[in-house]
Write a protein that binds this DNA or RNA. Sequence first.
DNA 1: ACCCCATATTGGTCAGGCCAATGGAAAGCA
DNA 2: TGCTTTCCATTGGCCTGACCAATATGGGGT
Lengths: 252, 252
Amino acid sequence: MQDKSARVNDRLYQDLARKLIVELKEGKYPVGGRLPAERELAQQYDVSRPTVREAIIALEVQGFVEVRVGSGAYVIQLPGKADIPGFDLSAFEITEARLLFEGDAAALAATQATDEELAEIAGLVDEIARENRDPKGQEKADRAFHLAIARATRNSAIFEAIERLWDLRNTSPEAALLHEKARTANVKPVLEEHTAVLRALEARDPAAARDAMRAHLAAVLDSLLFATEDKAVERARDATRAKRARYRAVAG
Amino acid sequence: MQDKSARVNDRLYQDLARKLIVELKEGKYPVGGRLPAERELAQQYDVSRPTVREAIIALEVQGFVEVRVGSGAYVIQLPGKADIPGFDLSAFEITEARLLFEGDAAALAATQATDEELAEIAGLVDEIARENRDPKGQEKADRAFHLAIARATRNSAIFEAIERLWDLRNTSPEAALLHEKARTANVKPVLEEHTAVLRALEARDPAAARDAMRAHLAAVLDSLLFATEDKAVERARDATRAKRARYRAVAG
DNA sequence: ACCCCATATTGGTCAGGCCAATGGAAAGCA
DNA sequence: TGCTTTCCATTGGCCTGACCAATATGGGGT
């Protein structure tokens, strides 16, 4: 061990892991690039190979590298990059994903929801109406409505995926801005669309539930595209037309 | 190594770290309590001491334990449910969510995929065939096939949601176990199902792509339910029948 | 009751060995 | 010539055994 004096009362693996993280930050190894081999790092830093392994495990657990047996340790994420999931997602992408996935969830919920859950969803429709009348209304009831339907699928993987898409609306700056812009323009949840979803659920009709949910979210998408349109002129109109074609081709 | 059959193609330290996390969650060691010594854990789990150290480092980096030299590893925080996304999800839930969502993604990909992307997907079908012929084959090409289709939607929110569902297969212990059980029973990706998906994509037919993808994932679900069935008798059969009814009602 | 010392226990790191997995180059075949 | 297969070097994975530093514990002395 050459630089014992530079150690800061830490264990060796922590010292080495810290050094490797600095190198990652400096861009010494690009994303997708491979770290030197254990044997090479051990020689380079004058430590034993198990100590190198321990340091690399520390990087691995933090998600900076992935280890491929027989091949090496590859950089999958640089430290310090925006760790906020969905940072670069657009409102369009999020809402389109919701359109497809929440349609399916509504269909499944139509076959699985209990009477108590349907009553809860009906109560949330009433609360959306109340929020619409409040000038300072937020979207809590709207979110709760969608998540109650996802919960009624009785599939936690579906629920988590949809909850996560809702959370992404706030995480993605672009999406949060655009939704705020739509809200400022007084775009509110349309009660008739929510009621149509509720009716289909109560009728236990999966296809109608899917269609109603998708019609609702297509309208949300339209309002977002409308909010986008007044940001540019001809280019935005063409892009909007193409985007509308996407989800209509799939959602029917 | 006592329970090699329960290993899920992970490295030993990850296997052991997962087991220790389970014990932490079960409250076997309270906050402030001390884990058994490295030598003791090595004996108990029939692994070497360096392997124990690696597992404990993984816990340490995640903030669950703190290591005091000469004293031991002390619990400073118990893993919460929120710390390991999908820890409690079942293989059924994950696969059912994939069936619904990947069906939609395939439909959208049929309208958006470039020729290059379709060629890549075709190459991955070939690679799945190659993996199927290898007795020690893994599922890398299968995963890549599904993610390539999700990528071809050109919607990062859809891609991330589907990638996350794939990752959950390994995070959820039950799902990882069940998939390993299916693999041990020589359940392999069925090439005709993948080819049918590819054909529908190449035909740019969204409805066919959705149907083909859902047929494929329904077969995966069936194989998982089959793997489940031999765990119990009458109760499992009834539960399985009910589970099959779920996704058939929605997927058509 | 408090302090000191010796010993046992703990984690830290190393060296060396062997095996499985991977990737690239070379050889073989059509 | 191009494709496939085989071989080998390199890679990580895990183990055994050794020794050292740090800590905890128990016993003895004041």
